[in-house]
Every structure is written in C-alpha cells, then in structure tokens.
Design a binder for these strands. Structure first.
Lengths: 353, 353
DNA sequence: CTGAAAGCGCTTACAG
DNA sequence: CTGAAAGCGCTTACAG
C-alpha cells in the first residue's frame, strides 16, 4: 500500500473517532495521564499505532505555551571545539527529551542577529549562545530580551545584564598552569604568542601568563608579547617575531592549539624544532594536538562536557532553579606532551650570575 | 524598564489593536503582501518594532501546514566528518531561510529511532539521515513513511524505497585512485587494511581497490585483506597482521584516515616507519591527516560541500523538483602527501624475473 | 485595500 | 473516568 505523499495528516480527532472516544481522552492518553481507564488507554494506543499517528508538538506547544526546543548558536561547526560543544549540548538535551535548534554565525555579528531572529521565531524554551567576536550586547538584548533563559558561553558579553547565565572557561588559570609548567622546565624568557589583545579570552590568558611570571619574580619583556590572528597560517608567518630581539625567548605559551601548531611549522621554516630546541604549549586540546609532531602540551577544556554542563544548567533554570549562581567557571587542565619538554638550564653555561 | 519574564506574549492582535487595523492586515504585512497600503504597512511595521513583536512560526505553520525546519540526524558531532557535513547543511539551510533541527545517534539504531521520532514531532519539512550502522530500513520507513522528503547520506539503506534520495560518496573510485597511486610508485603487493566487510562503504572501497589491481593484472592475495574496527586503536593493534606472510605487502590502502593513523603508529611499534619503508593511504582527509607524521595521502570527500549539496537537493525537492535522479554520487579526490611516497622498485634487486 | 469568521491540531478547565 | 467547548497565534478565503 503505497502512501500518497499528499494524504491528510492523522490527528487526535481521527484517533478519537477510530476508537469511539473523545479527543480529550486521546489527549490524556498521549500525555500519559493516570485518569484514563486501562482498557480505554490500550484501545487508544492500538489505534495510534495502527494509524501511524505523529504527535504535533507545535500545536501542543501553542496551546500549552511550552516548548521543548533549545536553540544553540555557535561560530562554526568546522571548528572541533564548537562541534564538540554542540555534541555535548545535543547529548544532554536528548537525554532530557529536548530537541536542538542549531545555528551558526561564522563570527559575524550581523549573521548572529539574523540567525537568532530566525531561531526565536521557533519559540525555543532557552537559548545557548557562544557569541561572535564584536557582538553588540545591547542589540542581542533587544532581540532576546527576557523572553527565555539565555546562557552565554565562552566569551563575556559585557552589559548583557545579570539575568543571563555565563559559562566561562578558566582561561586565566589554564594559561597560568601552562606558564608555570614552562618555568618548571627552567625557562625564564617565555613569550605569550598569538591572539588579539581585544578578545576577552586572549586578555584572560595573558593575565594568567603574567600571574605565573609575577609569582616567579620575572618582569615580562614587552617584546615577548606577540599578537597574531588565531589561525595556523598567521602563526606560522609570525614565528620570526619571537627572535627579533636578543636574548630571544626559549619558550612560548600560545593563545591556542591552532596558533601553537602554526608556530611549530613556522619554527621549522626557521631551522628550529619545537619540542627540541624551543618549548611551547597550546590551549584547547583539539584532536590534532595529540598526533602532531611533536605532540602538543596544551590546556584541556573538555568542550563536550561544557556543552552538557551548559544544557543542564539551562534545563535547571527551566525547572525553576534560581539558586545556581549566574556565572560559572569551568576548570582547565594541563595536558603535558612532548612539545614543552625542552629543559632549559636556569643558569646557562657561561653565565656568571 | 526591566522586563517581567512572565509577561504576556505580544501577538498580531496586540499589533492590530495598537494601530487600529485588523489582524488580517497585520498578517498581510508580516507576509509581505503587496495588497496593503504603504501608509498602513509603515504604521504596522513601526508598531511591530515598538512592541518587540516576534512572529510565532509554529502558529503560522500550523495554520498554513508548512514548515521551514529541516531535521538532520548524524552519528556524532565529535567526528569531524559529520561536524563538517552538519556545518554544510546548516549553511545551505540558513541561506534559504530554513532552520536546522539536529539529532545524533551515536551509531545506535535504537537511539536513531528515538531521535527521529522526537524530531518528526516538530514537523520538519524534510529529513537528512546519515544512518547508523545496522539500521533497519523497514523500521525507519514505518517512522518516516512518505510524510516528507528524505535524503539518506553516506550509507546505503537497502530496501528503503526509491522515493528517498541517496547521496553517496564515490567510495569505489576513491579507493581505486589510491590504489593506482601506490601502483604507480612501483608497489605490487598492496594490502587493503581495516574496516568491516559487512559495512557498505568498506565493500565499495574494497571493490575499487580490486578494480585497480585487476587492471594492473595483479591477483590480490587473500592475506592482503585485513579487517579491523575503524578506530585508531584497533588499527594499531592489527598492524602485525600485515606481516604474517612472506613476502609481506609493501603498501596498504587503508579503510579511512583513523585506521591509517592507527596503522602508522602500529608500524612504528614494529620498528617500521610509514612513509619511509611502508607506503599507506587513508580516506576522508580529516584535519589530522595534513599534520600527522608523516602527512597522510588520502581521499578527500569534502564533507562540508556534501552537506550543502544534501540540503540543496532536498530544498529543490520541496520546490517541486522531480527531475534530479534519486541517487547522486559525490566525487572523491586523491590528496597526495608524504605517507604514500615510498617508491618500490618493480623488480627488486636479486629478483631474477 | 480592509475586516469578520473559521480553522490548523492540540489541551484544559468544567460538567457530568 | 469521559465529553463539549473554548482558545493558543496565526492565515485564508470571502465580503465589502
């Protein structure tokens, strides 16, 4: 029996008629109410099965004014960091019976407004937003207002209001751990390489770097701070900047893994070998980090776990939680691999000090 | 003016009342009808802006019986292949004003049924499914029936019916290209390493491998076919199986990149070096492929482009396209890197032939 | 060009 | 325990 694609949809009315009960009763069965007689319930369920009835959640949501969708907006799924994060959100939502509406901005604030505007027309119960760089908090607020719980991930949105949740990565502590690790290898001249000063995560990571140097009594040379776009290519191009001054740094804390991998190939082009005569660390622990040459010492932020955490936090808000603080900082963990294991004598031979 | 979270939703009725027109007129303005007087339209639009009205697409879809959502079900966003694919789908949908409903199966046919059941309650206009291994076509068909256009990606679903679209990767041709490349390097004893015989993509890749050997007049030794789960770890463990017989293969076409990378480390553990004394190729061109040691020769399938292609094909179906054939095979392209550039003399020294 | 009325598929008091 | 009626927010003929 071939189905006609244009056939009429099966509704509660059809099910009700099909087994001689009212639509109310069918509705109660659908929602699992204990008020319905077991026999009646069984008859209704059989009819539902027989007719291949599909619940129309849009109609139900309209009537009940509820929603079981959550909107997620990320920069770009091609970035494994966001793909993992989205995977975690999806897993936690599915477990709770929610459905994921996904959009991406490609780091454009304009597309971000458009994508969010389109998603909220679908009436999500909550929104998870990993903001594009240079987002305008006021415009976002105008769009999302206080319609639904909102969780901002990863990038602070200043002035977005204190009724939105914020899940931050511990950028500062992560960078401090990486820097301390290099200090323990005996390095004293340690650069911070990559990222843009005006990005909040870069500022925070630099602060952690400075914390560690301060604690070790080292005043960072301004020449140790090298900016570059957070891409592999740019990092490779900027490698030379590390060696403009003498003495040059012997190690670098990189803004993220992409930058660290780029720097590694940039060093190779300059006849130096990361992990052999120059120590470096990354940030993120992307999949490549463990298989690159040398494997990359980095700071793991467990994006998948962050996604599950973000989703669960919002689901708790929907459940009426008002206890949890609005700002959560997720832990960062140092993963030591070969790229940083280049010991540097604290007092190089020939140094009289 | 702090918004009360529980405040009543602004509806077309409010907008109509707010500027003294009927709801019909507001609706016409919303849908961009040319029937409305320019003045009236401007007044309505101003009121919409002023009140922060958000279109309730669910209500509109209910009334109009249309939908602008497309459901996508993949195995796992942690797999960059699917993340890229999803990114492509998202990009093409957003461009067309559609919204993406995402679900994942984790390769479990049970979860696949549950996830699809949940997604179709949201009444998507179309479904893109990258089936979990061991999917049951009959069960899927019972769920999705002919309710909406369906596109199956990557894995054939035998007996799913010929009204569903199928977007296949050119597994056979891809594997043939890889094998021909190794033949050109002078290899004669070439293994096919990894994957499970019962997976359709493995069968197809093996067929392409055989095509190339056949054309070169080589009868593959059965010992050259090594099965293993398509993971890095399993591949590393199975590396020894390649050298069980003498003479052993000098090169291997691997089922995919994960397997190839695993084999490379398995070889290292056996004192052999991929790209130096053993040639190998992968499949997929995952991001790690270009940064591994040695960089991996592989077959690129451009998952992001496949995602855009899948979405566009379905959008065309929704637009009434009945011309495009149901089965589309996407091209595969050989990317040559160092792992396969191990020349092997056609007549090794000491061989009298 | 604009308005009154019906209806998409569901749920929820309210009677019985 | 079950049914009749109203209504969620929108759109669509149909009058005017």
């Amino acid at each position: 029996m071939p189905d006609s694609p244009a056939r009429r949809r099966v509704t509660v009315t059809d099910i009700a008629a099909g087994c001689g009960v009212s639509r109310s009763t069918v509705s109660l069965v659908l929602r699992g109410s204990p008020l319905v007689n077991a026999d009646t319930r069984a008859r209704v369920q059989a009819e539902i099965e027989r007719r291949g009835y599909v619940y129309h959640r849009g109609a139900a949501s309209l009537r009940r004014r509820t929603s079981n969708a959550v909107a997620l907006v990320v920069n770009d799924l091609s970035n494994p960091f966001f793909a993992e994060f989205a995977g975690g959100v999806d897993a936690a939502l599915a477990e709770a019976g929610y459905v994921l509406l996904l959009g991406s901005t490609g780091e454009s604030p304009e597309r971000q407004q458009a994508v969010l505007a389109s998603l909220i027309e679908h009436d999500p119960a909550a929104v998870i937003l990993s903001p594009a760089e240079h987002s305008d908090p006021a415009r976002l607020r105008r769009l999302l207002a206080a319609r639904m719980p909102v969780l901002v991930f990863n990038r602070a949105l200043d002035g977005a209001g204190d009724d939105w949740d914020f899940l931050a990565l511990d950028n500062r502590r992560g960078a401090r751990l990486a820097t301390e690790h290099l200090l323990q290898q005996g390095h004293r001249a340690i650069a911070f390489f990559g990222g843009h000063r005006d990005s909040s995560s870069c500022t925070e990571r630099r602060a952690g770097y400075r914390d560690a140097l301060d604690a070790a009594g080292i005043a960072p040379d301004p020449a140790w701070l090298v900016e570059c776009a957070p891409t592999r290519l740019e990092a490779a191009r900027q490698a030379g900047a590390l060696f403009a001054r003498d003495p040059a740094p012997t190690a670098a804390v990189c803004y993220n893994d992409a930058v660290a991998l780029g720097l590694a190939s940039g060093l190779a082009a300059l006849g130096r070998r990361a992990g052999a005569d120059f120590a470096l660390t990354g940030f993120d622990d992307i999949p490549e980090a463990s298989v690159s040459t040398p494997p990359l010492t980095t700071v793991a932020v467990a994006p998948r776990e962050r996604g599950m955490q973000a989703a669960r936090l919002l689901l708790a808000r929907l459940g009426g939680d008002t206890q949890t603080p609005r700002r959560t900082v997720a832990p960062a963990r140092l993963v030591v691999r070969a790229s940083s294991l280049v010991p540097h004598a604290p007092n190089p031979p020939g140094d009289p000090a």
